[in-house]
Design a protein around this nucleic acid. Structure first.
Length: 423
RNA sequence: UCCUCGGUAGCUCAAUAGGUAGAGCGGGUGGCUGUUAACCACUAGGUUGGGGGUUCGAGUCCCUCCCGGGGAGCCA
């Protein structure tokens, strides 16, 4: 809702957000999908026909109103509409979501209506800007967009649980990553990214996990670990700057302290896995070299800094089969996890990929993966293999952190959660 | 999957020790000086998640199932 000039007659098509009345004056707050505006009807006569229409209106009734806009300090937003005409489209039935407090189970059951509330609207407004920023970032740097398949014949990484489906009598799985396909595409296009939904059938039930989420995955030929870390840092900075610029109003509705975001500068602090383990032990954690960092450990590390942190050089055995080993320390791999501040978890996971055919073949065996399914992937190491790197960034993780939302379920219009697929 | 907490009116919650199920909001009706989660009065609204058990008597105790919140592992 945009208002220009001091006095002008406008028409608003929307829904009743709230209403109040008091003797000779009625207040009607309406929303049109872009914002809210307060309208008033004043009349000394009780039988004013507009009063009658106003009285019929219920919360979320749809309507078209016309009136004169003017500045009004007492109104929310600083502007107010003198209503001249109300055209009722539909009188809404008793609306379940009242202006009072509601519990999470109730709101989740009514997610289709919850989307209309101001806070949810603000989060999803930022989401669309975030997605646009991601595309602009990669498009502006000469990346080609590859739409990798959602139906896949086998596991990309082989470790996590996949959703199984049927594909003309053959088993198929919903994609958990487009990375392997991107690795094929870079030999054709140099720099690519895929951006789409990702499915993980893990039985995870935390504020950081969705069963279905959106991920952007860039992959770059000839890029080494350091190159891809820089790309990740640039991307995160770009996203933050864009949202601070375009979504002031929404961040304000969410009461997000933007100073924390404004302070973030690149390069982010870097810390190796080994140093992280030492730091954690100092802080009293019982984690041992070779253990993967759990959620409490990730939070501890992220709390040391007030910026995202790049964690690098992990033990090979806790990472995926395709990770490139460090030349000097073959027990470590050239991987990177970028952890969000404030305990929001992993924003980015990626690294340098194995480019040597023999080593990749060895790793497939060690990880017990069926060679047949990976023949095409091995081919990439036969015909002009190059060092290359890439990462995946989870849209909802970044959004939860930027908005400082308690739970990731509010960062996607219709979240898919463990055992929950309604609505 | 495991640990933990919970399920009472449309919603958010209360109900001493096992003893007649209640409030606020929302709905309806009426009132009201420009209200900001407006306010005031009146009013309707219940198989206390399902099943079983103990008891003279169960929202309350026991068993069991279902559903949900929070956390863990795994990950982005």
């Amino acid at each position: 809702m945009k208002i220009v000039g001091k006095k002008l007659e406008i028409e608003i098509k929307g829904w009743v957000y709230k209403k109040r009345s008091s003797g000779k004056i009625r207040f009607l707050i309406i929303r049109d999908g872009t914002g809210i505006l307060q309208g008033t009807i004043y009349s000394p006569k009780k039988d004013n026909p507009l009063f009658k229409k106003f009285d019929e209106l219920t919360q979320e009734s749809s309507l078209i109103i016309r009136g004169l806009v003017r500045e009004e300090k007492r109104a929310p937003g600083g502007y107010e509409l003198n209503i001249n005409d109300i055209n009722i489209i539909q009188i809404a039935e008793e609306y379940p979501i009242t202006p009072k407090e509601h519990g999470i189970p109730f709101l989740m059951e009514h997610r289709h209506l919850w989307l209309r509330s101001q806070k949810q609207n603000a989060i999803l407004q930022i989401r669309t800007e975030l997605i646009k920023a991601i595309r602009d970032f990669f498009d502006g740097r000469g990346f080609r967009n590859m739409d990798t398949p959602i139906l896949t014949p086998s596991a990309c990484e082989g470790t996590t649980t996949l959703f199984e489906t049927e594909y003309f009598g053959q088993k198929a799985y919903l994609s958990q990553s487009g990375q392997l396909y991107n690795e094929a595409a870079i030999a054709a296009f140099g720099k690519v990214y895929c951006f789409g939904p990702t499915f993980r059938a893990e039985k995870s039930k935390t504020r950081k996990h969705l069963i279905e989420f959106w991920m952007v995955e860039p992959e770059v030929a000839f890029a080494l670990l350091d190159d891809i870390i820089k790309l990740g840092e640039d991307l995160i900075i770009y996203i933050i700057e864009r949202i601070l610029d375009k979504n002031k109003k929404e961040l304000d509705i969410l009461e997000r302290d933007t100073k924390v975001l404004e302070r973030i500068k690149k390069p982010f602090p870097h810390i190796t896995y080994e140093k992280a383990i030492a730091k954690l032990n100092e802080k009293g954690s019982k984690i041992k070299w070779g253990d993967d960092l759990g959620s409490p450990e990730e939070t501890l590390i992220s709390e040391i800094f007030d910026s995202p942190v790049c964690l690098t050089h992990f033990p090979a055995k806790i990472k995926a089969f395709y990770m490139q080993p460090d030349e000097e320390r073959p027990d470590l791999v050239l991987g990177v996890d970028i952890l969000a501040p404030e305990g929001y978890g992993e924003l980015i996971g990626g690294g340098q990929r194995i480019s040597d055919l023999a080593l990749l073949e060895k790793r497939l065996k060690e990880y017990n993966l069926p060679r047949k399914a990976f023949e095409w992937y091995l081919d990439l190491r036969k015909y002009g293999s190059v060092p290359h790197s890439g990462f995946g960034l989870g849209v909802e993780r970044v959004l939860s952190w930027i908005c400082k939302i308690k739970h990731i379920r509010e960062t996607i219009p219709f979240p898919r959660l463990l055992h929950k697929i309604y609505p």
